[in-house]
Simulated assay, not measured.
Amino acid sequence: MKMTKMIISKEFSEYPAGRYRADGAFSGEVFRDDLLIPKLTDFDVVEINLDGSMGYGSSFLEEAFGGLVRIRNFTKEILHKKLRFNYKEDPLVIEEIWHYIDTAHG
């Protein structure tokens, strides 16, 4: 099983914000399309560490993670097998991410 780890604050931005690419270079759409989808395609498990950022807005999280189901045709079941999250600073954000994945319609 191929696994990779990603620290958003180091590999993407300490200031992730916005939903769409038009909202800026560190939006949920940019994160999803340019960083997350390639890792999900290349690895069986992607462990994402959310610590070290200045927070995550709901539009960023919904687009980055719910968008995997809505736009990119990953199933919820596949994502539950492939994604792992760590966020010591605010563990409730992990619940929020799973909510966006589980309620998205593909």
Rank of each mutant, 00 (worst) to 15 (best):
M1K: 11
M1S: 13
M1V: 14
K2I: 14
K2R: 15
K2G: 07
T4E: 12
K5V: 03
M6Y: 11
M6E: 04
M6I: 10
I8W: 04
E11P: 00
E11D: 11
F12N: 01
F12H: 00
F12T: 01
E14R: 14
Y15N: 09
Y15D: 07
P16M: 11
G18I: 04
R21Y: 13
R21M: 09
A22T: 11
S27T: 04
S27H: 04
E29F: 06
F31I: 03
R32M: 10
L36R: 00
L36I: 06
I37G: 02
I37C: 06
P38C: 09
P38E: 08
D42Q: 13
F43Q: 02
V45T: 09
V46G: 01
V46M: 03
I48F: 05
N49M: 09
N49P: 00
N49V: 04
N49Y: 12
S53P: 02
G55K: 10
G55R: 10
G57V: 09
S59F: 11
F60G: 00
L61N: 00
E63V: 08
L68M: 07
V69F: 01
R70Q: 09
I71K: 03
F74G: 00
K76W: 01
K76H: 03
E77C: 05
E77T: 08
I78T: 15
I78V: 15
H80D: 07
K81P: 00
K82T: 04
R84V: 05
F85L: 07
N86F: 10
N86C: 08
Y87S: 02
E89C: 07
E89K: 12
E89N: 12
D90N: 15
L92I: 10
V93I: 15
E95L: 15
E96V: 15
I97A: 01
I97L: 13
I101K: 00
D102Q: 11
D102R: 07
A104W: 01
A104L: 12
H105F: 15
H105N: 15
G106W: 04
G106Y: 05
G106P: 07
